[in-house]
């Protein structure tokens, strides 16, 4: 873990970051200009706040960085938090951004003759094997998961498996690939997450940021 007053905030790349930027501005975190330059190769960025720096990583890695204390705070969707369920992560603030849901989908044709109540075993392509297994296990269904890192919608089309578990926001991608959402597993939003040891040993600094982000969310 870094030395005193040297806090690291881990943020995810991509879609969530666009929604997160205004919140960061309102919370008073202004990163150096290179942060907003998509061409920049830099990975770690300074900010206007002394001792606070930002790293930009993949959304799954945000949770890992924070769990191991490499970053003290981060922003991650509860899809990622549900998948890993690290005991070292606290998720104190719902940032009310990145709204979507994690759902089970299958080809439209199949859904017309399928009765999910009769399943005993399913094969599912997903980025979230843990969430998927837990969800189906709770219903008494054994799930065999095929881990993919993207383009889940392709899997049923190509005959890899018939069902997928993936994030859905508008449902357009599913529709375009001839899939239909049959079950929602959970609603997803992005959370401010903090490392357990960091919160316990630097309660004022980390607690201050939690309050600040909570205020920004309440005001928004």
């Amino acid at each position: 873990m870094s030395a005193e007053n040297n806090l690291v905030l881990a943020v995810p790349k991509g879609r969530i970051l666009d929604q997160l930027r205004p919140l960061m501005d309102k919370a008073g975190i202004h990163p150096e200009p290179a942060f907003d330059d998509p061409k920049a190769r830099q990975l770690q960025f300074g900010t206007n706040v002394p001792g606070l720096s930002i790293v930009r990583v993949r959304s799954f890695d945000v949770a890992t960085f924070v769990a191991f204390g490499a970053a003290h705070m981060g922003v991650a969707g509860n899809d990622v938090l549900m998948e890993f369920d690290y005991p070292e992560i606290y998720a104190p603030v719902d940032l009310n951004i990145g709204h979507c849901r994690i759902s089970v989908a299958e080809p439209t044709a199949l859904s017309q003759e399928d009765d999910p109540r009769q399943w005993s075993h399913v094969r599912v392509a997903t980025k979230y094997p843990e969430v998927t297994r837990k969800h189906f296990a709770a219903r008494g269904v054994q799930a065999e998961c095929i881990k993919l890192n993207g383009a889940m919608e392709l899997a049923p089309k190509m005959g890899l498996c018939r069902r997928i578990v993936d994030l859905v926001s508008t449902g357009t991608t599913l529709k375009e690939n001839g899939l239909v959402e049959i079950e929602e597993i959970a609603q997803i939003t992005s959370r401010l997450i903090v490392n357990r040891t960091a919160l316990k040993t630097q309660p004022d600094e980390i607690g201050g940021w939690i309050e600040k982000f909570q205020e920004v969310v309440n005001a928004g």
Partner: peptide, 10 residues
């Protein structure tokens, strides 16, 4: 729980 600020974990 006992913590040290510079050590990850308890």
């Amino acid at each position: 729980t006992l913590f040290d600020r510079d050590v990850r974990g308890e």
